[in-house]
Amino acid sequence: MSANIENFPGTPLSQADFDEGKILTTHWKPKLEYGWDAGVAISRYLAELKNGRLIGIKCNRCRRTVVPPRVVCEWCWEPMEAWVYLEDTGTVNTFSICYIRWDATRAKEPQIPAVIEIDGASRGAGILHLLDEVNADDVTIGMKVQAVWKPAEERSGSITDIKYFRPT
């Protein structure tokens, strides 16, 4: 069937169609605002970030410590209740050198997002954060890094209380 069809439907538009005013378009910018409650597990996580500490949670059944903390172990679906303070150091699990912003516009200086396995959590348990104070070309998977915190008075109970991670 596909082989016998010469003209598939659909009309691609070109820039010229817009320049020549052939296309009518209606624009709308939503004005939405949300307030997200942190919930039971993440409230403690944020409170400890404000204190300059990372905290995880352990499933005593799976013997797995994860971060960010959560109230249920997704493996065995039992409640997680054993809070565990973690180091603010870790290992780069993977990273990227990123030249585009969230809206696909281009940035001159790259950001280095990374998944960082946190010391004290189980192997493979990491968080998303950024690397800095390092030449992008020098970053490797397996690199040891440490959190760089905002000064105590500037911390607000947010993941951005850690400014970034840097090589140790």
Binding site: I100, W102, L128
Partner: peptide, 21 residues
């Protein structure tokens, strides 16, 4: 929304992170 979006991520990050891994 709480633990990741404050870092201003974009979708390509997760692909890049997975591809690099």
């Amino acid at each position: 929304h709480t633990t990741e979006r404050a870092l201003k991520p974009n979708l390509v990050w997760i692909f890049a992170l997975e591809m690099n891994r």
